[in-house]
């Protein structure tokens, strides 16, 4: 499958994401924030970083970039979209996902190998995992606190839209330890930790993140 990775001005992890797409067995396609063009891809990843310098609010400017108009439309048609860290923030600002991400409750940037539980394996980004799988994936953020009103949180939990939850430590004050969520349809996933940094033994905390990049093919073969 062809998987596009969008580069915004200020994206940091676009190259790692492109590399992870390839390692996961898919064809990586670089996309540019200023283009009204998804180049025929089957899925899109919005990578981590500080797009538009995090000006105004994280993701607030990126949400109105030309490529996002295409991404929002494609997501509405059911195209798989994964937002990692800053990408998650962009998806919330786009209202493709509910809630918002605010400054960490302890006010410091956090960078750690984070234990997570994968709670929803029905999305095209998590099908490679066993439900309830406990994994270690790198986390690094300054504004990663997931917030939403109580009714939204109850709905997310009730409908099984919590994709991943923090284990052992809540690293950023996220409500109900939420690390990642999906939309009602299940094609759009936002995740604060960085699976693209956990796909090779040579670097990082292991290869537990690889599942996010192999799931597309597994889903397509089902």
């Amino acid at each position: 499958m062809k998987v596009g990775v969008v580069t915004f001005p200020g994206s940091l992890d676009d190259v790692d994401a492109l590399r992870a797409v390839g390692i996961g067995g898919n064809e990586a396609v670089p996309l540019w924030h200023g283009d009204h063009d998804l180049r025929g891809v089957d899925a899109v990843i919005l990578p981590g970083g500080f797009s538009y310098g995090d000006y105004l609010r994280c993701g607030a400017i990126s949400r109105f970039s030309p490529v996002m108009a295409e991404v929002i439309e494609a997501a509405g048609r059911g195209m798989p979209v994964l937002g990692i860290c800053n990408g998650f923030q962009i998806l919330c600002e786009s209202h493709l996902l509910p809630g918002a991400l605010i400054r960490n409750d302890h006010r410091k940037f956090v960078c750690r190998d984070q234990r997570l539980r994968i709670e929803n394996t029905r999305t095209p980004w998590t099908a490679s995992y066993d439900e309830g799988a406990e994994v270690t994936i790198v986390l690094k953020n300054g504004e990663g606190g997931f917030v939403a009103d109580e009714a939204t949180l109850d709905r997310l939990e009730g409908e099984g839209q919590v994709v991943a939850r923090y284990l052992e430590v809540n690293p950023n004050g996220s409500m109900r330890d939420i690390a990642g969520i999906t939309n009602e349809r299940g094609n759009v996933v936002g995740l604060m930790p960085h699976p693209e940094h956990a796909v090779e033994d040579l670097t990082g905390a292991g290869t537990d993140g690889l599942g996010f990049f192999t799931s597309l093919l597994e889903t397509a073969q089902k």
């Binding site: 400054r103 960490n104 409750d105 302890h106 006010r107 606190g145 917030v147 009103d149 004050g173």
Partner: peptide, 14 residues
């Protein structure tokens, strides 16, 4: 302004 129910870490720092 952040809504009253939303934690405001910057305000807390001040």
């Amino acid at each position: 302004m952040p809504k009253p129910e939303i934690l405001d870490p910057q305000g807390k720092a001040v």
